[in-house]
């Protein structure tokens, strides 16, 4: 009986302690990284599945971190409408090498060239599975 009591007390202390730590980290994150979606674009990552799977784009990296504004890309390089680029026939690497889409900046001058560092954006089926919380085992068996 004594042992059980001790266990309960320990469990209680652990849960309480864990709670405090969790709250503290939450508020610290909020203060540090307030992200205004109206100013910087949607925080959620864009994942393209066509013409190939597993390509990622982050508004946050380009606006909040790199300092681009919405007008730098919209509506001339990319339509504002979500998923529009994917419907275009020339949304591919060849077009980017000619300066379209991502290639407008990713030319080796302003940003790393579109024909280098492939896996920065092409995070692959595995990368997407990791992002969406799907375990590797389930996607590879």
């Amino acid at each position: 009986m004594k042992k059980l009591l001790l266990l309960l007390v320990c469990a209680g202390a652990f849960m309480f302690g864990g709670h405090v730590v969790l709250n503290a980290s939450d508020s610290a994150q909020e203060e540090e990284e307030y992200y205004d979606e109206d100013e910087f674009g949607p925080e959620a990552l864009i994942i393209w599945e066509s013409p190939v799977r597993g390509v990622v784009f982050s508004h946050k990296t380009h606006t909040y971190e790199m300092g681009l504004s919405c007008e730098d890309c919209h509506d001339e390089i990319f339509e504002m409408e979500a998923g529009y680029a994917e419907t275009e026939d020339d949304f591919n690497m060849e077009a980017m090498y000619e300066g379209k889409y991502c290639g407008a900046c990713h030319d080796g001058d302003m940003a790393f060239a579109a024909n280098t560092r492939c896996t920065t954006c092409h995070i692959g089926v595995r990368g997407v599975a990791r992002l969406t919380g799907e375990s590797e085992e389930s996607s590879h068996h």
């Binding site: 190939v52 597993g54 390509v55 492939c118 995070i123 990368g127």
Partner: peptide, 9 residues
């Protein structure tokens, strides 16, 4: 190798 993008086609 450096060109592989894990599209798994």
């Amino acid at each position: 190798e450096h060109l592989c993008i894990d599209c798994e086609l």
